[in-house]
């Protein structure tokens, strides 16, 4: 299966930039690979960039929050960047406010957040 979301390594940071709307299996695949790579690359932080996603269904939202919490259990920090207004609102309506997960407006700010904190 072709890899839909490449995971880039930049220093101690892994960057997964989602470029298109993902199917359920794509999201699960991404989750699996991120959790593997965190240990394999000895990453300190992971940034998931969702700025290209216009619609995120409940499954996608739920999995995204699962990725976030499980990355933390694997000992790294996770930042979600680029959540679009519509996506943010639908996540909140689903009750997924991700209270402990740092978020940032875009990749720049996300990197700044990791390097600063």
């Amino acid at each position: 299966m072709a890899v839909k979301v490449p995971i880039l390594k930049q220093g101690k940071v892994l960057i997964a930039s989602i470029q298109e709307d993902l199917s359920d299996s794509d999201i699960l695949d991404l989750q699996h690979r991120i959790l593997e790579d965190v240990i394999r690359c000895r990453a300190e932080a992971v940034i998931i960039d969702v700025s290209a996603i216009g619609i995120l269904d409940s499954f996608g939202t739920k999995t995204l929050s699962e990725i976030a919490y499980s990355v933390r259990l694997r000992g790294a920090k996770l930042v979600i960047v680029g959540i679009q207004p519509d996506v943010a609102l639908s996540m909140v309506l689903l009750g997924l406010t991700l209270p402990d997960i740092p978020t940032a407006l875009d990749l720049d700010r996300g990197l700044a957040l990791i390097n600063g904190g």
Binding site: M91, V92, L93, T97, T103, A104, D106
Partner: peptide, 12 residues
């Protein structure tokens, strides 16, 4: 409240 939570998701 929801609006403010959504704003936080966007990083603000």
């Amino acid at each position: 409240i929801q609006t403010m939570a959504a704003a936080r998701l966007m990083g603000a």
